[in-house]
C-alpha cells in the first residue's frame, strides 16, 4: 500500500494549493466573494463527468474482454463519481441560495444533475443486489453504458434549454468567459480534484480486489464468518 502513497500526498498538496489560489483571487464583480464557490462546485461537477466516463470505459472494457479488472474500474469510478456528483449538488445549493436566492428550483440542469446522481446510486444498488460476480459485472456494465448517455445531456442542458443555471463558461463554443485570475485558480482546483479522484479510485479498486479475494476464500473453504459461534436464543426454551 505504501508504495503509492505519493498519490495521496500529491492530492493533499494540490488541494492546499487550490485553497490558497481560490482565496487569493480578487472578488468577482457581480457576485463578490460568493464566486469562490465556483472553484469547488465546477471541479466537482467535471470530476463527476470524468468518473462516470471512466465507468463507461470500464463497462465497455468488461463487455469486450470479460476481465474482472474492468469491472472493478467501472464500479470504483462510479462510487467516487457519486461522491463528486453529490458534492456538486450540495455546493450548488449553497451557491444557489446565496446568489439566486433559492436552494433549489426546477431548472433543467438541476433536475438532470439530480437524476444522474440517482441513476448512479441505482447502479451501486444494482451491484449490491446481485450475488454472482459475473452476472453483476455484466448487468452493471450495461447500466454503466446507458448511464453515460447522461453526461453530454447534463452538460449541454444549459445550452439546449433556456434555464436559470448559467451556461458553461469554459467548455463551450467560442472563447472562455472568465478572467485569467479565475482561470488559473480553477485550473489548479481541477488538477487537485483530479488527483483526489485518482487517489480515491485506487482505494476503491483495492477494496474491490480484497472483497473478491474474501468472497473466493469463503466460497472455497469452510471459513467461519464472524459471529458464527453465536446462536440465536429460542423463544420458550427458558430453563
Amino acid at each position: 500500500m505504501r508504495r503509492k502513497a505519493w498519490l495521496d500526498f500529491a492530492a493533499g498538496a494540490l488541494l492546499a494549493g487550490a485553497l490558497v489560489a481560490g482565496l487569493a483571487v480578487p472578488p468577482e464583480r457581480n457576485m463578490g466573494d460568493l464566486a469562490r464557490i465556483m472553484f469547488v462546485h465546477v471541479p466537482a461537477a467535471w470530476l463527476a463527468y470524468l468518473a462516470f466516463g471512466v465507468t463507461l470505459v470500464g463497462s465497455v472494457g468488461y463487455l469486450a474482454t470479460g476481465r474482472m479488472k474492468w469491472d472493478r474500474l467501472a464500479a470504483g469510478s462510479a462510487e467516487v463519481g457519486v461522491y463528486f456528483n453529490g458534492l456538486t449538488i450540495a455546493l450548488g445549493m449553497i451557491w444557489g441560495k446565496s446568489t439566486w436566492g433559492v436552494w433549489w428550483t426546477w431548472d433543467a440542469r438541476l433536475v438532470l444533475t439530480a437524476i444522474m446522481f440517482f441513476v448512479y446510486l441505482g447502479y451501486l444498488g444494482l451491484r449490491r443486489g446481485i450475488a454472482d460476480p459475473v452476472a453483476r459485472a455484466r448487468r452493471s456494465a450495461w447500466l454503466g453504458v446507458l448511464g453515460a448517455v447522461q453526461i453530454p445531456i447534463v452538460h449541454f442542458s444549459v445550452v439546449w434549454w433556456r434555464g436559470l443555471h448559467q451556461p458553461p463558461s469554459v467548455i463551450r463554443p467560442g472563447g472562455v468567459q472568465m478572467d485569467n485570475e479565475f482561470r488559473i485558480a480553477l485550473a489548479i482546483a481541477v488538477l487537485a480534484f483530479t488527483f483526489v479522484y485518482a487517489a480515491l479510485l485506487r482505494r476503491h479498486m483495492e477494496n474491490a480486489l480484497a472483497e473478491e479475494a474474501l468472497a473466493a476464500r469463503l466460497a472455497s473453504e469452510e471459513v467461519e464468518v464472524a459471529g458464527a459461534a453465536i446462536t440465536a436464543p429460542r423463544y420458550g426454551e427458558v430453563d
Binding site: 483571487v25 480578487p26 472578488p27 468577482e28 464583480r29 457581480n30 457576485m31 464566486a35 465556483m38 446568489t99 439566486w100 436566492g101 433559492v102 428550483t105 436559470l164 448559467q166 451556461p167 458553461p168 463558461s169 463551450r172 468567459q177 472568465m178 478572467d179 485570475e181 479565475f182
Partner: peptide
C-alpha cells in the same frame, strides 16, 4: 424573485463587460 447570473466571471477592475 430569483437572480440569474450569466456565465461571465470578471474581476472588478477586469476586462470590458
Amino acid at each position: 424573485m430569483i437572480i440569474k447570473h450569466d456565465e461571465q466571471y470578471r474581476t472588478e477592475d477586469g476586462e470590458i463587460y
